[in-house]
């Protein structure tokens, strides 16, 4: 197994063990994103009547 393949396996194991995690989107973040999306949708629909 070459260097890259061995390193790949190590990285996969780290992902599976959730080592070095990055900050995740929280429930609040998803809600904010949903609200913003709805706002954009309302603006797009509303633009039809401008």
């Amino acid at each position: 197994m070459d260097n890259i393949d061995k390193n790949l396996l190590e990285r996969i194991e780290l992902i599976e063990q959730e080592k070095y995690p990055v900050k995740r989107m929280t429930k609040k973040d998803y809600i904010e994103a949903a609200i913003f999306t709805l706002l954009c949708l309302v603006l797009v629909i509303g633009g039809l009547f401008v």
């Binding site: 994103a33 913003f36 999306t37 954009c40 949708l41 603006l43 797009v44 509303g46 633009g47 401008v50």
Partner: peptide, 17 residues
């Protein structure tokens, strides 16, 4: 005015999804 809406809100709507 509609151009502003479609360019910003339209683009952002698709991007958010």
């Amino acid at each position: 005015k509609q151009l502003l809406i479609t360019s910003f809100a339209g683009a952002l709507l698709m991007l958010m999804i």
